[in-house]
Amino acid sequence: MSSPTPRRVGLIGWGAIGRVVGGALAAGEIPGAELVCVVDNRPLGDSAPVPQYTVEQALDHCDLIVEAAGQGVVREWGEAILASGTDLLVASTGALTDDDLAKRLLHTGPGRVYFTGGAVGGLDLLQAVRAMGPLDTVRLTTTKLPSTLEQPWMDEELLARMRSAGGPVEVMAGTARDVPAKFPKSTNVAASVALAVGDPDAVRVRVVADPAARHTSHVIEASGAHGSYRFEVRHLPDAANPATSQVVPYAVLRSLAALAGRTGQIL
């Protein structure tokens, strides 16, 4: 029996996530997936192991695009990628808390859209529980270093409190619809939980800045008629980009392996 044709992968983004994902693909570490090109708005020279293309060129050569460059890419290019017949794997899940965008992506084809859970686990269990009935409460508390949470919209008073804090400081509280829009590079976990639960407005989120946070932490607490659940993950931040966790590119690679047809793994 002949082997199936490998997925031809284009990677958008050559940053902290993209370099790890691209390096593993180029080294043949994901059977059934071949890295064809990299898309980035900066000239990469010889730093990438494959040619650098525009998005339009990538769509002519690939059947799967991996987004590893931020929510803006999903908003700008998501529909065009899917309309071309190319599948899209989204790492920046925060973009999908925009209901209008999410609906357009789900109804655009023939390409298919997928998302990866990134730095958080337990999403499959939340999905299973939700199938039995609604959850009464879902709470997420994300704690990171203050410097990784600073945003242009913050006023001087909040920035001063974060920068001078001797302990944890609550930076924002809201829903999983509100928070990813305010922290587009730091709170994709909130969006991933919302996608698992099926309702961004049902997920209450606290974002905490802690100068002693050697690890980035995410605590998910959920309860309903069928039980109560609590997950806590603590990750080392990526050295090159502390706003993301070291584990995120490996979550992307695991999703890629599933899409490429690797067998014998928990799905």
Rank of each mutant, 00 (worst) to 15 (best):
V9Y: 05
E34K: 15
V21L: 01
E76Y: 08
P6V: 07
W77F: 12
S3A: 15
P6W: 07
E56N: 11
A68M: 04
D63G: 13
R42M: 11
A33V: 00
I17W: 05
C37H: 09
V73A: 11
G10L: 04
P43K: 14
A24H: 11
G32A: 10
A16T: 02
I12Q: 09
A27W: 00
G78L: 06
I12R: 09
G28F: 05
L64P: 05
V39G: 11
G23L: 05
E34Y: 10
H61S: 15
G78Y: 00
Y53E: 11
G10Y: 01
V74R: 05
A27K: 07
G13C: 02
R19Q: 13
V74H: 05
L59P: 10
V9S: 08
V73R: 02
A33Q: 06
A27Q: 10
I17E: 10
I65V: 13
I17D: 09
V50Y: 08
G72I: 01
P31M: 05
R75I: 03
V74L: 02
V36I: 13
L64D: 00
E76S: 15
A16S: 12
P49M: 14
V66F: 00
Q57P: 06
A16H: 04
I30V: 13
A68P: 02
Q52V: 12
A33M: 07
A48M: 01
Q52W: 06
G10D: 04
S47D: 13
I12G: 06
P49D: 12
G18L: 02
D60R: 10
A68I: 01
G22I: 01
G45A: 10
P51A: 13
T54D: 08
A68R: 00
G13N: 02
P6Y: 06
E76F: 09
V9H: 06
T54I: 03
N41F: 07
T54K: 14
P31A: 11
P49E: 13
L11T: 00
S3Q: 15
G45E: 05
S3C: 12
P49L: 14
G13A: 05
L35R: 08
D40M: 10
V66I: 03
A48I: 04
R42Y: 08
G70R: 04
P49A: 15
L59H: 03
G23Y: 04
G70Y: 04
G13H: 00
I17M: 12
V55D: 12
G18S: 02
I12M: 12
P31F: 00
V21I: 00
T5R: 15
A68C: 12
P43C: 13
R75K: 14
A26S: 12
G78D: 08
C62R: 10
G18E: 02
R75Q: 13
D40S: 15
A69W: 03
C62V: 05
Q71P: 06
G23W: 00
A16N: 02
D46A: 15
R19S: 11
W14T: 01
D60Y: 01
V38I: 09
V66Q: 05
V50H: 12
D60I: 00
D60G: 15
G22F: 04
P43I: 09
G45V: 04
A48R: 06
P49K: 15
G18V: 04
D40E: 10
G45W: 01
